[in-house]
Nucleic acid binder design. Sequence first.
DNA 1: TCAAAATCCCCCCAATAGGGTGATATCTCG
DNA 2: CGAGATATCACCCTATTGGGGGGATTTTGA
Lengths: 208, 208
Amino acid sequence: MSKNIRIVIIEDDQIIREGYTLLIGQTEGYAVVNSYESFDDAAKTITDDNPDVILLDIELPGTNGIQAIPRLKRLLPHTYILILTVYESEKTIFEALANGASGYLTKNTPATRIVDSIREVKDGGGPMSVNIARMVIKSFQRNQESPLSKRETQILEQIAEGKSRSLIARDLFIDLETVRSHIKNIYLKLDVNSRADAIKTAKENKLI
Amino acid sequence: MSKNIRIVIIEDDQIIREGYTLLIGQTEGYAVVNSYESFDDAAKTITDDNPDVILLDIELPGTNGIQAIPRLKRLLPHTYILILTVYESEKTIFEALANGASGYLTKNTPATRIVDSIREVKDGGGPMSVNIARMVIKSFQRNQESPLSKRETQILEQIAEGKSRSLIARDLFIDLETVRSHIKNIYLKLDVNSRADAIKTAKENKLI
DNA sequence: TCAAAATCCCCCCAATAGGGTGATATCTCG
DNA sequence: CGAGATATCACCCTATTGGGGGGATTTTGA
């Protein structure tokens, strides 16, 4: 026995919604069990749909897609959420992922890729459009041209972990005064004069 | 005129290295300009190869792949690095990406996907194997069952930004003593008694 | 060989962190 | 409705910290 993957679509544009429904419904092994034009609409009955995967748009009337994610998660803890949107701003992407989305596709994604991604999400993958994946990877990467030396960077990291000077000194097997000295240089280079500002500046410039 | 994508392979296993060379060399538009069995070996002449993309293994004799990334970046600032390895530990993956890798594929990746990924990397994408992508996405996600209340989470975030109690109080428009009180509750719930430990525990459990 | 980096040392003092022990108002959920 | 969680504020204490000064020496890398 082969069970279909149960899919719900939340998308306000009727044309797109029906397009996806048709596309996915045609595909062997996939079943669109319901579709809604807003989260507020979906919230009432979506638990009865018992979907495996929800295709979710970001721009929705009322509750937007980002806000909808944690609520959907609460309604359906074991359902995967796949974002399908035109939004490509970094903020939106990271919010969506942080809120619990399992994948993020932009709307120019080819039909076959969408269908594949639904399967992928259900199999524990994390499908992303190429440009999204690039942004995600970039978010991990440090600034290569940091003004800070290795040691300074290392110490700044520990500061960002909330460690006191003495703890840092102990953990790095150096003197308390050395830590102090490094911190002074860090402040000089970053043109700040407090831990909070140093961390802020460092994060903004991806130094840590 | 169509220019080939210039590729260099750094991989210690001869069989695999020759396999990739053959596979990629056969493909229209791709040229393997050189291959090495270690970074230390490659370092001497790789700048002459002038590659667009480097396929890099993690487990290498001498300098390992992770350490090799920043050095390759220094030698060839405009070259993309694509990791191709059996390693799937979270630590390795995030280190590789943080060090400047543009993509991360595991060795069970189908041949066609490898070839596609090279193109993708050159076009500004960030190819990842499905399981890698899942880990990367998961790394963005918070623990849904945090013991901390919203306010406590918010305050813990500010602590992780290096802010002092008084700064937090000012920014949240609450009394210094209230901040204190929240922090005490955070410490209670996390069973810690310092900022550093709170941040550590919180990060381990993805509470922030 | 020469500059940058890393290491260590001293002064000062206000601010901070963390421990203890409370109170009160609101909110939420069964 | 009522218990428990949450958010707010108060005052006690003291050791530690953080940041601003001023320096010096050694190690390292290009």
